[in-house]
Every structure is written in structure tokens, then in C-alpha cells.
């Protein structure tokens, strides 16, 4: 690098740039949080949905599945599973409930979590709520996720 570009200048770009863009990120974050109610489906966030989210976490579902494209890539996307399962929470509940304990020979299998009916209902409601989040361009691209 040329001598006209000094270490002091480089340092100032670092400090100035870092502080400036950090403030920009904070500003954008405030704006985003303010606008979220338009898209985040929070009007349907019932107690049951919140319990469902906790169950989702405490059974580490994200360790195999993606949810709105984030998570693991071993098993199908679940952000739109409510749509894929014919917009019926009963189908979701039945699927989770009847997983064989020993798995399906030779295939990737989902564990049997031994959930109660109330817990199944909460999880299914949570997945229904997630399906209602308004993602940009209606992501995922199609029903297969």
C-alpha cells in the first residue's frame, strides 16, 4: 500500500466505520421490531402456541428439521407443514404420535417423543401459527418446502 495511506487513516476508517454501521444496524433493528406485527402473525400467538414453541425447543426438533429454512437439513421443512398436511392439525398430531419406537428399518426415522395429547395439540398449533407468518415472496417456493 502506498505511503500516502497511513496507519492512522486505516485506524480511523475502522473506528468510524464500525461505530457508524453498528448504529445503522441498531436503527434498522428498531424499525424492524416496530414493523413486525404486520407479518409475524402475533395476533394468533395464543398460550397454546407459546407452549408449543417451548415443546419444539425442549425436544430439539431443530436438530433434524428446518423451520423457515433454519436448522438442520436431515428432515423436511416444517414452516409450511400445516399447508403440506392439508391444513389440518389432526394430521400433524397423528404423524408425531405414531412414530415407531425402533424407527423404520434402513430409513431416516423420527424418534417417538411420547407426548401427551395436550402436548401434541400445542405443537400442532405452534406449527400452524408458524405457517401463518407472512414471509417475503411467500417463502418457501412451493409446498414441498
Amino acid at each position: 500500500m502506498r505511503e500516502t495511506f497511513t496507519k492512522g487513516m486505516a485506524r480511523n476508517i475502522y473506528y468510524g466505520g464500525a461505530v457508524f454501521f453498528f448504529l445503522v444496524l441498531i436503527g434498522l433493528t428498531v424499525d424492524t421490531v416496530n414493523r413486525l406485527p404486520e407479518t409475524d402473525n402475533s395476533q394468533n400467538m395464543t398460550e397454546l402456541v407459546i407452549e408449543g414453541k417451548r415443546l419444539w425447543e425442549e425436544n430439539n426438533c431443530i436438530g433434524c428439521h428446518t423451520l423457515l429454512g433454519e436448522g438442520a437439513y436431515f428432515a423436511p421443512e416444517l414452516g409450511n407443514v400445516y399447508t403440506r398436511f392439508g391444513e389440518d392439525t389432526e394430521n400433524i398430531k397423528a404423524f408425531i404420535k405414531y412414530r415407531p419406537v425402533e424407527g423404520i428399518p434402513n430409513r431416516r426415522s423420527m424418534p417417538q417423543f411420547n407426548l401427551t395429547d395436550e402436548q401434541l395439540e400445542a405443537l400442532a398449533q405452534f406449527l400452524k401459527y408458524v405457517d401463518g407468518i407472512k414471509t417475503a415472496r411467500n417463502w418457501p417456493p412451493n409446498v414441498q418446502g
Partner: peptide
């Protein structure tokens, strides 16, 4: 898919 299932499910190995 069923390798080590259900002893070490995929999600556990991943964590």
C-alpha cells in the same frame, strides 16, 4: 438412516 437409531438419534449427534 437407522444407523445407531434410537440410541443416538441424528439430532443428538448433530448437537
Amino acid at each position: 438412516g437407522d444407523f445407531l437409531f434410537p440410541e443416538i438419534p441424528f439430532n443428538v449427534a448433530r448437537m
